[in-house]
Structure formats: structure tokens, C-alpha cells
Design a protein around this nucleic acid. Sequence first.
RNA 1: AGGGCUAUAGCUCAGUUGGUUAGAGCGCUACACUGAUAAUGUAGAGGUCUCCAGUUCAAAUCUGGAUAGCCCUACCA
Length: 1182
Amino acid sequence: MGRSRQALYHLYQRLHRNLLVPGAAFVPEKTRRRRLLPVQRIYHPALQPGCRNRPQHARANMPGCYKEVTDISAIAMFKVVKNEKSASLFESDDEDVRILAWTTTPWTLPSNVALTVGAKIEYIKVKTLSPYTGDPVSVILAKDRLSAYFNPEDAGMSFDDFKPGDKKLPFKVVQSVHGRDLVDVRFEQLLPMPELMTKELEKDGFRVIAGDFVTTEDGTGVVHTAPYFGADDFRVCKAAGVPFIGILDDKDRIQPLVDKQGRFVPEVPDFGGLYVKAEYYPEEVQAEKGFKSTDLLISLKLKEDNKAFKVEKYKHNYPHCWRTDKPVLYYPLDSWFIGASAAKERMAELNKTINWKPEHTGSGRFGVWLDNLQDWNLSRSRYWGVPLPIWRTEDEEEEICIGSVEELSQEVDKSIAAGFMKVNPYKLEVEEQKAASAISKYVFTGDPKIWETLKSYGRNNRKNPTEAENDLWQRLRSRGLAGFKFRRQHAIGSFIADFVCIPQKLVVEIDGGYHNSDEQKTFDDARSAFMSQWGFKVIRFTNEEVRNDIGGVLESILDVLTSPPSPLSKGEGVRSEFGGDFNQEGGNSEEQVGSPSPLERGLGGEVDLHRPYIDDVVLVSATGREMRRELDLIDVWFDSGSMPYAQWGLDYDKLHAGDDRPFKAPFDSMYPANFIAEGVDQTRGWFYTLHAIGVMVFDSVAFKNVVSNGLVLDKDGNKMSKSKGNVVDPFGTISEFGADATRWYLIANANPWDNLKFDTSGILEVRNKFFGTLFNTYNFFALYANLDSWKMNEQDVLPLDQRTELDRWVLSKLYSLMQDYRDAMDDYEPTKAARAIENFVDEHLSNWYVRLSRRRFWRGEMNTDKRAAYETLFECLMVTTQLSSSLAPYFSDWMYRNLTATLRKEAKNNNTPLRHESVHLTDLVQPDPSKVDKALEKRMDYAQRICSLALSIRKKEKIRVRLPLQKVMLPVLDERFIAEVEGVKDLILSEINVKEIEYITDASGLLKKAAKANFKTLGAKLGKQMKDAAALIAEFSNEQINALEKAGSMDLNIAGTNYAITPEDMIVTTEDLPGWKVASEESLTVALDVHLSDALLAEGTARDLVNRIQNLRKDKNFNVTDRIHVTLENHPAIQDAIAQFSDYIKSEVLATELVLVEQLNAETIELSDELTLGVDLRVDEI
RNA sequence: AGGGCUAUAGCUCAGUUGGUUAGAGCGCUACACUGAUAAUGUAGAGGUCUCCAGUUCAAAUCUGGAUAGCCCUACCA
């Protein structure tokens, strides 16, 4: 099966799902009944006239649709009518006062009905001469725009010397007036059209109105206003009650002066029938000598009639049709609206119950949008999509909105009874329908039920050919091409082919460059493939090809026609097999429908609600009149908003039972959604449509939590775009850095709702820092667990009290992490969760727990301590894989399986947590507050800080860590501190290689305290005295500090006022201990005794020896477990060390013997810069 | 044009209800460690918290304004 056909399946399936059986079609019915407004005329962008499928408005915003073009712009002079309102603008009765208004679309001038000014803008009246005729005239424009049209140097020029066409224009500013005072001033219609004048226009048209969109950035500060051709214009005219100018259609509805082909209607004097844009004329017409665009013709007329102040070329951006590349017209269309604005208060109210991440998207962008909510324009004038299920009588008096296939079928039955239809294509039992809906289908070829609709679709197409189709038909008709007979709009299978030559089995299709769109190409390919099933060849041409090179097109067709016919060809006889010819008089469907081939047999006779078939369904109104479907489609956003209902489908049983929410299970348990996520750019898209439908139809939110994620930008913060070449290929990134590192980076680097500056170096960092560390930690564990053949036993785990302080500490951290992780995730803060894991793995697990525990893993035989270490590290790694599994699914699963594979069998037997084959199947370990020991965490924090400070002193004094020191001294500010440090004393001593800790208290007399003001507590009490107080407290002596601590309160005299302060109001620290090497950080101070005794030096030397011998072992690739025999060259410098620490050295390096000799010519070790010794290592034989 | 968000070290980001000397990682520099070794540790340099004004005893933090970047909506008569 080809790709294109699969794509087609998908397309059909989606269309189908969104249609009838599920709720999408149901929803609009209810919605409509409640709040859908009647048809109203509204400004709506219709793009390229002559393009049969009017593109969606969204297309106009696509890159490349705005193009810079040069148009003619005109400043027209609108003659002010003198009356009571305008009297102040006139100096005399015969003064010619005009208002200047600029336009870049002169073709809209005949439709002008108003001039819009800014109420707060200041305008002036200028006496000058008409540039094109030289007649005296007074013009009104914004004061700020004066200099754009008048050169100050010309102000004093004589009016008499001016001749029409002169560059320099004399002028004189004579009056100033506010915009609001111009409102309601009347003017004469610029291009009079007496036959189109109405009473309404006479009464309320052709006057000045105010609009908030008017600026003085360009133009004259007065906006020429033609309500049919601009959204602002439309809105402001509606608001001001200015009637529109237009012609009446056959239903007495007012229509614009430009038709949908982009031509002036015949009623427009001088310009009737002209295309308003030059580009709409065929190219050869545009190229003709003397061709003048309508804009130009209008401008010329204005000049002649002394109504133009300035006409010039103007460069600006103008939207173009994405397909034909021609300028678009903004054009009013009839549209269907959902009266969403009526529900906006409720939407806003329910929106407050939604948890938005980030919060401001909900309250800001979305909330503001809801507050200013406009009605939802549901209409789309397209072909592919969900048809609006509304049928109305021609006079629009009666209408029906269909909510289900069942209902439609019933209505069709009525219609058949009334004689409007012959067959019911939707006659299906509900049970059948259920069965059918399970099957995707390809086409409904040859199904007699749709024959009627197919036939009339062809008929309609023939009535409304595109220009290109028309051109080609003129050449093909009446055997015009080498005597071959062609038919047009001929049905083949379930398709209508544009042109068919049946004897030669050739189909010719014309499209408007549809192939620019992948989707359409896929569909066209499917059509071609389908028709070729019957042996038809299909060739396609674009509109442009036909219109610009008809000769070439005909040649190509002839080429194919005269090539040897396919062996499958059966000549004219095939007709009865493949359908009818709509050109033929007396065509009869019974004759034309043959027995369907297996391929064309509709699957279970499933119904199709799409155009064109649905358009031929005619229903009958309550009063027995014919009702036809409104041709519009429903906005595709409606589909997306229907997703919570449409995904389950309509449940007829519930529907019949009157259920308000008649959707199939598990709808009830799935609605409203707990959580959704999409890009922040969908705020007014998906988020809105979901919410709107949920609120309007069910008075419910559709989702309870929502994350609106930010955009992924390139590493410099620019939007990724193909044209800039800064697009990152996700597949390349993943294959280079791995999916897990990429995922982790995306989540951990920045909050999902922040824009992400995507930089692969960040992924690299994650990979090295986080995954590298975790991997190393795991490797370390695996190395020794394998050596010891250690296996986790879930049934027999050491209780906490048999573990070391360090074990309990890291487990406490682990269980704290679990809680933090859950809190963050519950709060939809995945970034915080990821960072918490990172911090634990790097900071606590790897750089503290493992670093300090290494010896426990490699030293000696298995014992309780070693077992505790293994179990602890195992648990840490296990939980880490669980917590990171959603962000790093592959790595975590890999690690989980490595950690647990050997335990699986037993775990399954015992039904213990590790029985699962994958980490993704395990239950997340529950947080257990009893395992969290905050006091222990605090103690360890002290230990870490004390070690860090002590090491920094060693560093400064250049005393290597292997050299033991006698003692470390800690000034003590309160008694608890001693108890806390005692708990982690051993860790500290071994980490910094010091023999003892000495606590320095007040009693020692060595402690020098200092106090600082606690701004936070004191600030509130003292206010302005804060600075003085801080200075006083900084001067406190030991005695004062002690006194305050002892008494608990004390008076501080500042500028004559006493303030009571407490110990909390000061922060006590210790100052340096004189004579000691000291380092301090915040309230913690550490002093190190750096005096070295002989014993300490000997021990240091012994450790150096161990270190060097270990290096050598490694260089020689000895096994970690090899026992060795060590021979060492003697030297006075090591004598003490050997004498006192021989056993220690032997046990450390796994030596069975350590022998000193006087001379040794073997390998050497460098003990210090000055001392090099010979050494010989041998592995013991046994 | 309107609305929304963002702006803290070279880079990516933390920064609680305003509070003392603004932090981390990466990168950089130097050193150390060498039984986690394609690792690791310690230290150092690096800041006008985008700018301007205001509130306050006290502002990265609150208020107003500006600038820049991004997103959405609309559109330029």
C-alpha cells in the first residue's frame, strides 16, 4: 500500500471522526440553539477573487504573503457642506473648504461613506491652491501632517504666481480645530452616484466620524472610510450608525460595489465592470499599450474634477494570495457566528478555576482575551472540512440544525416524503452504523446512494468553471482537438474528473497550483492512482500553464492521445462501467451505474457527510418548503475544541435517554481533562476552543491544569526558520546526543513555559555533568558488587539503626528528594524536579556519599558495614532511576535492569517491588517521613562546611591532605553546636586527616565575638534609626553580646530614645583566633593546628608510600585483589615511617611482606622533589 | 498598532513576604588528587542585577517610564 493511500485513509478517518458519530456535529447544534447568532454581514477577508477555493484568512499571515508592491496613492479632497455644524469652518459663503484624506487603494473611493478623524488630534485649515487646477481652496488636515505636504518656505509665496503643476505651493494656515469638533460635519460624496443614493445615506452618510485607530504617522490624519473594505472602517461605521453604500441583491440585501470576481458592479458610474486591481486582468491585457489600472483611472478622474490634492506612487506591504500570488481584497462575507461574547463572563469565571502554568498566561494573555471576547466566526468558505449542518429555506425564514446522522436520516425521510429527495443516503440502522464506524474506508465508489449527489456536483462544477477550465474547454469542445471527443466534469468512480477522453482513457485535470501543498499533492496522487485502476491516464496542469501557455498544454494532451492506447482500453463501451457523462442529454443514473468492483464497494455502505455529497441533501421545512444547506464549513478550530467529546464519540443510547453529555465511555471519567499542554501560541487557538466549547455547551472547564510551553529558539534567541538556516534537526540532535540527554536538557535547562535558547552545548553539559556522574556512580557500585558477588536481598534489609551515620544521611537526603520531587511534579514544575535529582546525584550521592564511602566498598571481607554500604547505595540508585524515568526513559531503564536483572526471578516469586521487568512498570517509592532526619542533614551540612573550610586552610598553607594534623578547633557559639558536630566527628576527622577536634568556648578566653545588626527584625522596629543602630551593634564587645544573650533583652539608646532589642536582633559571629590558621564562612569558623610533630610526619610519609605503591600496582596492571611482595630501598627519611607504620602500609597495599634493602636497582618512586627510592613489587604466587 | 512575557557573571540559569558582602553549573586561570581515572576535588578571576525616575531606614526584588528580544492579535487609511 502506497504512502499516499495511507495518508488518504488517515484524512478520511479524521474527517469522519470529526463529523457525525462523535460529538463534533452534536456540539454545534446545542451551541447554536443556545447562542448562535443569526446570519449577519461582517467584514471578512476574502482573498483572491477568481480563486475558486477562497483561502483561509490565516494564510494571509503566512511568511511571504505580504509583499512589497508599488501602488497608486491619492489624497482626495472632500468638499465640506456648509451648514450649522460646519459654519465655523467657513469665512465666507463661497469658500471652498475641503477635507484631505489619503488612500493607497483609490478603488475604494467610490464606496466612501465617511471620513474618520481622531477626536483628540488637532487639525488645521490651510488656505492654498488646488495643485492640479490652481483654484483657491481651503484644506483641512492634521496639524502634525502639515509639513508633509507644505514647505514652510512657501508660506509667504504669492497666490497669484502659481500655475498648475508648479512644485511650490503657496499656503497659509488660518484656523485650528479639534477632531471632536469636526465630527458630524457633512461632505459631498466624492464620486456622486445618484442612482445608488438612499434615504439612509442622505440622512446619516457622508459625514465625519471619530475613530480611535486614527494616527498622524502618515496620510493626513483623516481616514477615508469605506466600510466594506476594511475592518476598522466596518467597525467604526457600525458604531457611528453610518449606512453602507452598495447595491441590492435579489433578496434585497445590500451588497458591495465590488463583486466577488473583483470587478466593480455595473451600477458604478464610469468604472462599472472594471477589475479593481490591475493584476486581475489577464497578463496580455495588462501588457497592452495604454492599459491603465483602475486606481489610476480613478485618480485621473479626481484630478480632472478638481478633487485630488496629490497623486503619487506608494510602496507598501500588501497581502497576496499564497497560491496565485495576486493581491487580495478584503471583502465582506456572510458568516455564521457563535455568540461567544455572551458567555464571556462565565468563561472568565471558570477560567479562574484552571491551574495555569505559568499563571500569567491564564490571567494575562488568556484572561485579557476573554475579557474582550468577540463572537466566534465559525464560517469557512472552503471545500475540505466539516460542513455546517444547517439547512434553511431560501428566504431564511426557516432553518434546521442537524445534530446527528440519525436526525439527518429522519429529516431526509421527511424530505423524500415531500418529494424533494429520491433516496436517503443516510438510511442506516444505528447498529449498522456502529459496525461501520469501526472501519476506515477509502471511497464510496459507485454506491447508488451517492449517485445523485455526485451527479449534481458535476453539474455545479460545470456551471462555475474556473477561467483556466473555461479556456481549455473552448479548445477541447466539439472535438476541437484533432477530432477527439472530450467530456467535462465526468464521474469516474467516486471522483469528478475535469476533462475525460473516454476512447483514449485519458483524464486531464487542472488545478490552481495545488501541488504547492503537500496535503493536496498526496490527495491528487491518490486520485490519479485511483483512476488508473480503470486504466485511465491522468495528466495535470496548473491554472497558470493553461492560461499562459494553452498551446503547450494542448500539445502535451495530443501527445498522450496519439501514443499507443493501453491494452486495457475498451473504447466508448467503458462508459457504462465507469459512470455517466453529464454533458449528455437524457443521462440516466440507473444505466450509468454498473455493478461496483470490490474496490469501489463502499465498506458496509458507510455514509459520507462531506461535500459535495452533503450539499445535495435537500430537507423540508416545517411548512413544507425546500431547505438547502448553508455552504460554509466549520472553522477547523472547532474540531480541535471538540476533541474531548469527539475522541470518544456520540453514544446514541445516552442521547436517546436524554443524557446531557451523551458520549461514549470513558468520557465521564476523562472529562474534564486533568492536564493538557501545548505551545503558548495556542492560547487563542486550542486552549480557547476547548474552553469555549466546554463552557458554552456544558458549563464546565475542559481541562483543570494546563502548561503552555514556550518556544524553542535558536541559541542566540532567534526564532528558528528555514530561511535563516538556524533550524535544528531534532533527529540529528537525538542521534548525536541521545534522546535522554536531549530530553533532560529541554526540561532541566529552563521552565517549559520560558522560551528555550536551544544550544547543543547545553545537552553536552547535561550528558557530562548529570548522566556522566550517575553513570560513574553506577559503575563504581557495579565494579565492587561484582567483585564481592553482592546481591540485594529485598526480603532482608538492614534496619536503619544498623547503618552508619553517613548511610542514614544519604537516605534521609534521598527521601527528602522523593518528597521534593513529588511536590514539584504535583505543582507541574518538572524543571524543579529535574534539578532536584541533578543536585542529589551530583552534590550528595556522588561527591559526598560515594567519595566518603569508597573504602567501605573495597576494604576487607563482607560484613555488616560493607553490606550497609551496598544496600544504601543500591537504594539510592534504584530510587534515582525511578525518579528520572519520566525524563530519561532509556538510561533509567537500562540502569534499572542492570541493577535488578539478577534479582528478578526471586522478586517475582516473592512478589516484591523489583519483580517488574522495566522501571516504567514499577510503583514509585512512597516518601517516608520517618526516614528523613533533618537534624542529621543539618549535622552533615556542618561537616561538609567544616571540611571545606579546613581543606581550604590546608590549601592555603600548602599542607597536603595525606599529611595528618593534630587538631582542628571550632569556636562554639551555642552548646547544641557541639552535640551536632560530635555526631559527624569521625567523618570530619578522616576527611580532613586530623586527629582531634577542640571546641573553643567563652570559657577559653580565646573567643572574640562580633555582632552585626539583623536588618530584617530590627528594620521593622527602628525604621529610620536603622543605620545608627547597625553602627552601635557593630561596636558591641564580648561582654555586651554575652549580656544581651543572657538577659534576653536590652535597651539600645539611639539619638536619645531607648529601643528594646533582643538576641534575635543581632547576628553573632566569631572573629579570627589570634595565632591560628583560620577560615570562616557565615557563622562558622574553623582553625587548624598546623604544627607538625615527628609522629605526624612519619604517618604522612607512610601514607605517601602507600600512595606511591598503589600507583605502581596500577601501572603494572595488578588485579585489585592481588597480594604482593614489596621490596623497598632504605633511606633515613622513611625509617620512622616504616618502623611505626609497617603493618598499616602492608594492609593498605595488600602486601604479604615489606622488605627494606640498602640498594635496589629497579623501578623508582618519587616520594618528594628531593627523594627518589628504588622499589620492586611482585605478585605472590599463591 | 494593541496585548503578553523576558532582561542577573563570557554562556545557561537560581534568587522566598524588600534586609547586611547577589549565588550555582559550564567555560576560563591556577593548584591538588590518583583504588570512581575518557573521572574527581579546591581555589581564583569574572556583576553599574538593561537604562532612567520614584516609594522606602533599606530595591535585583515594589511602582512608573524607556530600550531590546520573543510570542499572540490586528493592521497601516
